[in-house]
């Protein structure tokens, strides 16, 4: 909050000018500190991954490429593991793969949620009650366990980054569906929708031209939330040894370290780097999600 300073009548005219969009955005970030911190962490992670992919030999993320079991040093900042992977390269590639899983699964989950939520709320009736009931029945089932069944049923060779994303998204669309449905329900009753209806605008045009643009902040928040849960779910699956075992996903590194008794053998650096990486990813996504919620909800939005 900024304090309002009394302005003399002479300067009142200039202060009425609308500041530029960038200033407004930066001022908003100053009020919404969580969003700002989240975005900064995310940018740092993206820079780490992009610069890493350019400068580091990705082959070193795979076994037998460097000396084994080296503690962190100038040559290997994060050390190397039992299988001869350079953990810095593994982190870069792992971050990239985590991002791929998160964006694919998050995007698909949000898309399914938006389509189902819209259909459900806009058309109502038996369509609405069917979609709602299915969501309610599936929600109490622990998602990870069903994912374990699906991932376990796949041939080990078929488990890739992309199948991981699909497995994760399979049971993750219920949340966005219910959120979007609730928002469309309130939006439907607004006056501008009634006016559009009375002027003879068709269903499709109302959905895409009247309701969808107003829902964008919610969809953005739902997307970030979906990316968060996709990253979380794929991480848990990988820690349980159900990921694509060859790939240096962050969860896979922790799984492998645990399997080889990293702490018992004194190779403490092995699981530490992926843990801290995961904390940063999840924290930035959670902060951005909360920040977007505030942006989308004018009622809790802080004013200047």
């Amino acid at each position: 909050m900024t304090t309002v300073t009394a302005t003399s009548p002479a300067t009142a005219d200039t202060s009425m000018e609308q500041p530029s969009g960038l200033t407004l955005f930066l001022r908003y970030l100053n009020r919404n500190r969580g969003l700002a911190v989240g975005v900064v962490i995310l940018i740092a992670l993206v820079l780490f991954t992009v610069i890493g992919l350019i400068t580091i030999n990705p082959k070193q993320a795979y076994p037998l490429s460097v000396a084994t079991k080296q503690p962190p040093s100038l040559k290997y900042p994060f050390g190397t593991d039992f299988f001869g992977r350079n953990l810095l390269a593994a982190m870069v590639v792992g971050m990239w793969q985590t991002a791929v899983i998160g964006v694919i699964a998050g995007g698909l989950g949000t898309l399914i949620g938006v389509v189902l939520g819209f259909t459900s709320a806009y058309f109502g009736g038996w369509i609405d009650s069917t979609i709602r009931t299915v969501c309610q029945i599936l929600t109490p089932i622990p998602v990870l366990l069903i994912q374990v069944v699906v991932a376990g049923s796949l041939d080990k060779r078929d488990v890739t980054i992309f199948t991981m994303a699909l497995i994760v998204v399979m049971l993750a669309w219920m949340g966005p569906t219910l959120v979007i449905r609730a928002q469309v329900l309130t939006m439907k009753e607004r006056q501008f929708v009634s006016v559009a209806k009375l002027s003879g605008v068709g269903d499709i045009a109302i959905i895409f031209k009247e309701i969808l643009p107003n829902l964008l902040p919610f969809i953005a928040a739902a997307f970030v939330g979906q990316v968060f849960s996709a990253v979380f779910a794929s991480f848990y699956l990988a820690v349980l040894g159900l990921g694509p075992l060859r790939e240096p996903l962050l969860g896979n590194i922790i799984w492998a370290a645990q399997l080889q008794g990293a702490f018992f053998n004194g190779w403490w650096w092995w699981p530490i780097a992926p843990s801290i990486g995961m904390i940063l990813i999840l924290a930035s996504l959670a902060l951005i999600n909360m920040g977007l919620d505030e942006l989308a909800n004018p009622r809790v939005r802080k004013t200047e």
């Binding site: 979380f232 991480f235 848990y236 820690v239 922790i254 702490f263 403490w268 699981p271 530490i272 843990s275 995961m278 904390i279 999840l282 924290a283 959670a286």
Partner: peptide
């Protein structure tokens, strides 16, 4: 809040156990 219990476990193992 955002830290998954498994990662908390790894960090605890490192600091308190190791």
């Amino acid at each position: 809040t955002g830290v998954p219990p498994v990662i908390m476990g790894v960090l605890l193992l490192f600091f308190i156990g190791f």
